[in-house]
Amino acid sequence: MDDQSGVGRDLTLAAACVAAVFLFALLSPAFGTAGNAATVLRNGYELWLIALGMTLLMAMGAIDVSVGAVMGVTAILTGQALLADLPLGVVMLVGPAAGAMLGLCAGAVVVWGRIPAIVATLGLFGVFRMLIFLVLGGQWLSGLPADLTRVVDWRAAGVPAGLLIVALAYGAAWVFLRRTTYGPHLLAIGFDEDRARLMGLAVTRVRLATFAASGALCGLAGVFYIAIYRNVSMTIGADIALEAVAAVILGGTPIFGGRISLVGTVLGVLLLRILQNGLLLIGVPSLWQTVVTGALLLGVLSAEVVLRRARTGAA
């Protein structure tokens, strides 16, 4: 699945993460501690989950910019399930189930409405934001019970359960991509949808399933959000769609589809979170963090263009 340049990108990203870690550790004594490493990972949970769904969508040539609002709606449902004293197992399933439904809605609009994914999901983003507003009615959910927090922070042999769940999600995606026909079909659609249809692939089914899977992952991110922050405000998830797209592109899955790198997405999210945490720890004002991540994205993309030109020029 990872072609040659994809593996190269993974190595570059891994090297960038390591370099950033060394640099920040050198400049700030607070960075290289076990506690801070745990914080960086913990801050990445929701973005990893949402970026996984986004990776699948983008490999297929689609995108979903409503992911932040889907996380918002599912976080509210999870919070209310928690307040209603439902069994914890049920509370944890409410989010992913509702997320899958919302993802399926987005897929249906894109597939049957024949509307480009970015337009359809932008419209749904507005609708879901309004839903959040109506459900919250202007009041915040805040000071929620810590039941889910204990689940996510519970450690098995030193590894937090939250990290295990994220790893499981990526593992499951990897198995589906590599061991079933889902992977090749997904990439075929991303490469050329019409040709995939002519070849007799179940294009509609694959597209709907991918939107639903992405929605379910957003729902799981909503559960994590409640576990970690224990409050929901109106603005929940306002920035996370762009962060996810940035992480996926950094990771080497192109925005027009046809290629996929799960390892790249894992590293892309990690690099974003390391930068956000490290820059603050070495005293760079938080206002500059978005500039740094934006510049990083532009740098990677233009380096890619230059390299490709050099390669085709040589051939």
Binding site: F31, Y225, Y229, S233, Q276
Partner: peptide, 16 residues
């Protein structure tokens, strides 16, 4: 505007 970012910034401040 997001509560999530405020929590992450505060956590980093405490570490720094």
């Amino acid at each position: 505007g997001t509560a999530e970012r405020a929590a992450q910034l505060s956590t980093d401040l405490i570490a720094a």
